[in-house]
Design a protein around this nucleic acid. Structure first.
Length: 566
RNA sequence: CGGGGCGUAGCGCAGCCCGGUAGCGCGCCUGCUUUGGGAGCAGGAUGUCGGAGGUUCAAAUCCUCUCGCCCCGACCA
């Protein structure tokens, strides 16, 4: 491809709107342009990268036995009402009405549509296992789209859905996808880690996320320093600590803590460590309010809390609500004498004795409080976030935290959707059984963005070879007949060798071409100038290392092929 | 949803506080020179100053409303 035939608007300066590396570089190198918040056009060069990622995904999905199909972007409300997700999915589901006032939504995911297809078309266990996938545009009306392709509202996703006769079969399907995902991300040149994950709005029993470790990641990954355990922070289990020592209980007394509201203020004032205080958070969980107790130096994990309570979402109560329930301003809530509020406590609290808590009275805390004696706890559970240094729940070392970009997630759904939508098949005894499902997603654009996050330097992108928009960037310098002849010869020869070549045929100065080439990030640059040609050579530069070698033009294709293979 | 910021030429920005009818750099067009890491000189084109309303003799500038975008936060008591 010649640059003159390609819309490739590179930017000299960083666009004002972009903060993160991948967003900045994808805009600057002319891959994407924004149309609205979280909605982008893929320019020709950007689309080439998307297509490369898609090709890798297709190859691996097909290899794993999945079949490609394509579902519609618009789907009717009826299907979503069958599973309850018309309400449950919330505001992320973009809804609209057609001209007949019928309700529709733009598909954020396609469990309903595929399950509907399955129940209509598949009758017998003999047809199983089945796995369908598509690569399609999804729409999720995110609260806050950001970082370019990293969190868009409209984005390209590969989603797959497996159907099996029983749990064992479903597990096998799940494992196949897990393995396929590992191959896909490896082939895309990513350093990633599969971690245990929460199932969120999709639901199901078991789930793993594929995380690309990068500072700009929005997720927090927890993993053991010595063993194999790895999980999303939302999910990471924390084992119940061993029972308390036999410290004798002291009697509870109220102390004045004027203007001391936060854990830091209260513990500093009382001259104790935050680990000796128990904080009380009031949460609204759908219709009811609950109190959650965690140690002062711990944080409540809202995902765990929601799961324990069996709700979609929990929200910290506002100041007025706190005042109504506790009779005190925010900062002094405690479990003692709380009315009409169930109290849940983190395991760590169970191990504590003689701790400090809020007294439900302004400027007052209790010291030497003890659960059971001074207040009752509905149940103890794992309700906090893991912290660095916590023991691994698998007993294999201590936990470390890192940031990650979630590029894929796999779910073992069980019969959640098949039950609600009555997707049954006949088994070998002629008996109706619910299909056991799995679902599997990959963010295509996000995978490309993650690759940029992991592969760049101050000059620009350094594309991993398998997803590079072009393999070789051909840079003629000057307008001499010798250069023109050598370049068009090389252009032919490189393509005959099977390489994808971008030929910068603009009448630009050397510096401009070099800088654009470094920005765009093709793995190899071939520089053809009069200087080199005078001694019979052209220069081959490896983008990643900056290494430059001189070769006779005729030797370039073979040399590049050899390097790529090695 | 809350807070902060920004919207002025294709891009990056100044001008706004203190009203007087719009400017800089890059890019773009023409010509000449130049040509191995973002060229030089000369000439040139390009703006409903996000939108609406108001104040004023006069508004990019002041006031009100509105739309869009970016960043942070979304409550740890």
């Amino acid at each position: 491809m010649r640059t003159s035939q390609l819309l490739l608007p590179t930017l000299r300066e960083d666009p004002g709107e972009a903060e993160t590396v991948s967003h900045r570089l994808m805009l600057r190198s002319g891959l994407i342009r924004k149309v609205a918040a979280g909605i982008y056009t893929y320019l020709p060069l950007g689309l080439r990268i998307i297509k490369k990622v898609e090709t890798i995904i297709r190859e691996e999905m097909n290899r794993a036995g999945a079949q490609e199909l394509l579902m519609p972007v618009a789907s009717p409300a009826e299907l979503w009402k069958e599973t309850g997700r018309w309400e449950y999915y919330g505001k992320e589901l973009l809804r609209f009405k057609d001209r007949h006032e019928r309700d529709f939504c733009l598909g954020p995911t396609h469990e309903e549509v595929i399950t509907d297809l399955f129940r209509r078309e598949v009758r017998s266990y003999r047809q199983l296992p089945l796995n369908f996938y598509q690569i399609q545009t999804k729409f999720r009306d995110e609260i806050r789209p950001r970082f370019g392709l990293m969190r868009g509202r409209e984005f390209i996703m590969k989603d797959a859905y497996s159907f099996d006769l029983d749990d064992a079969g479903a597990k096998l399907s799940y494992q196949k996808m897990y393995d396929a995902y590992s191959r896909i991300f490896t082939r895309c040149g990513l350093t990633f880690r599969a971690v245990e994950a929460d199932t969120g709005l999709i639901g199901g029993d078991v789930s793993h996320e594929f995380m690309v470790l990068a500072e700009t990641g929005e997720a927090t990954v927890v993993y053991s320093d010595k063993g194999a355990y790895a999980a999303n922070l939302e999910r990471a289990e924390i084992p119940a600590p061993s029972e308390t020592d036999g410290t004798p209980l002291r009697s509870m007394t109220a102390v004045s803590t004027p203007q001391r509201k936060t854990v830091e203020e209260v513990t500093a004032f009382l001259n104790i460590s935050p680990g000796r205080l128990v904080k009380t958070l009031l949460y609204e969980a759908e219709a009811r309010t609950v109190a959650v107790l965690v140690r002062g130096d711990h944080e409540v994990n809202e995902v765990k809390l929601a799961r324990l309570l069996g709700v979609t979402e929990v929200e910290l109560a506002g100041p007025e609500k706190v005042m109504t329930l506790t009779g005190a301003p925010v900062g002094f809530a405690g479990p003692v004498g709380l009315k009409d509020v169930r109290v849940f406590a983190d395991y760590a609290v169970k191990a504590m004795r003689n701790f400090v808590i809020g007294a439900n009275q302004a400027d007052t805390h209790f010291v030497d409080a003890n659960w059971d004696r001074d207040f009752s706890v509905a149940s103890f559970a794992d309700l906090r976030n893991a912290q660095p240094g916590d023991p691994s729940p698998r007993g294999d070392g201590r936990l470390t935290l890192a940031r990650g970009i979630e590029v894929g997630q796999v779910f073992l759904l069980g019969t959640k959707y098949s039950k609600k939508m009555n997707a049954t098949i006949l088994d070998e005894h002629g008996k109706e059984r619910l299909a056991v499902m799995g679902c599997y997603g990959i963010g295509v654009g996000r995978t490309a963005a993650a690759a940029v996050e992991q592969n760049h330097d101050e000059k620009g992108i350094i594309w991993p070879f398998p997803i590079a928009p072009f393999h070789v960037h051909l840079l003629p310098l000057g307008q001499s007949a010798a250069v023109a002849a050598a370049v068009s010869g090389l252009y032919e020869q490189l393509q005959i060798a099977g390489l994808e070549v971008l030929w910068d045929d603009r009448d630009e100065r050397a510096g401009v071409k070099f800088n654009d080439a470094d920005l765009i990030g093709a793995p190899y640059q071939v520089v053809v100038g009069d200087k080199g040609l005078a001694e019979g050579t052209v220069e081959v530069k490896t983008r990643k290392t900056g290494e430059k070698i001189k070769l006779a033009p005729a030797d370039v294709p073979a040399a590049l092929l050899k390097r790529m293979a090695g």
